[in-house]
Design a protein around this nucleic acid. Sequence first.
DNA 1: CACATAACTGGACCGTAGTCCGTTTAGTAG
DNA 2: CTACTAAACGGACTACGGTCCAGTTATGTG
Lengths: 207, 207
Amino acid sequence: MSEPLELPVVQPETAERTDAARNRERILCAARRLFDERGVSCVSMDDVAEAAGVGKGTLFRRFGSRASLAAAVLSERERDFQEALIRGEPPLGPGAPPAERLAAFGEAMLDILDAHSELMLAAETGPARYAHPAYAVHRLHVTLLLREADPVCDAELLADTLLAGLSAGLYIYLREVREMPLDRLKEGWRETVERTLGDGRGVSVSA
Amino acid sequence: MSEPLELPVVQPETAERTDAARNRERILCAARRLFDERGVSCVSMDDVAEAAGVGKGTLFRRFGSRASLAAAVLSERERDFQEALIRGEPPLGPGAPPAERLAAFGEAMLDILDAHSELMLAAETGPARYAHPAYAVHRLHVTLLLREADPVCDAELLADTLLAGLSAGLYIYLREVREMPLDRLKEGWRETVERTLGDGRGVSVSA
DNA sequence: CACATAACTGGACCGTAGTCCGTTTAGTAG
DNA sequence: CTACTAAACGGACTACGGTCCAGTTATGTG
């Protein structure tokens, strides 16, 4: 409690030049539009550069990779989500017991995946997922909840393991290949959380 | 018990022409050697084709993609592993209680990852992991163990979730970026299995 | 305003995975 | 042995992600 966590928000040390800022906006805008129109996988980086009216070099200077561009397009959602985790209403935000917060976290992630799976898949290509600051935030959040609920567990490791179950690749496979409905995935997540944090099965909950 | 499972072994419906078989061997041999010499990520498909003395078209005709070639190179290990799962000694093979078999399964997978992480990463690029027959075998194995240990759980979903924690991408991240030793990952897996299958905490095991 | 300089720009360029298709060859039937 | 055909072959080709660098421009300073 108190100072919840220092978020690893990326603060540019040097202010951006005005033309650079303008191009960043153009690129993000064009990317959002194209991804929306054609589907993420049918949009190449050249397409984005051309639609934004900038050179390819500029595009890659701003957003080092395709995965990173996808992540940038997602960043607003992610900002809202992080806000809800840290300062929002329970059970997602502070106030609820850790097991409930963890359950709510997963369900919220699944909703985001449901809405943006293609984009999130593009954002976690290769090692990109673990390198992204958003992942670090999620990991820290889950780690703290686990540690709070059960101080003796290996929370650091368990957090990464649990988050693996919320990857976009797995989500798309479960939904599209295995044809599981969203509700089943949410129920499964709740089950996993209960089992992981000990839902009191057997252990008297009368306290 | 009795007929354990029908394994989805890929049986070519038409016999391979002798030149085709020869080229397959050449390719596998060259790939194994190059991967070993330079590291998987420093070997291109052109390199493999040239070293094998075949054209690129032939290479892709035999092994539809890079991921698939990597999987083929791994196939012997995988065959031995599957053999051990189905007919080997307990606790990996039949005979031990499901929770112990599941723990042993994960530890064995972690050993394989330890030995072949680069190759396995290459084999699970993109959606390849879930499409590969080996994944189907692992999934079925874990599903059956879960169902046996706890008939009321959603074993199908839980199996995929647990296997997500054994992906090559996560493994490499945990080992190389987070610098966790192999033993810690094994211990974490055991912990996860215990929590998932109820290690008897509270619930009387006297039955 | 003139200058210096650091940041930005665009597009030519590179290596790679994967495709296409005209040519060659293994296997078979007569 | 010859002829035929389906399969296999190989390398030119494409599309894409990502890099490089010579030229341009925004911005602070005298």
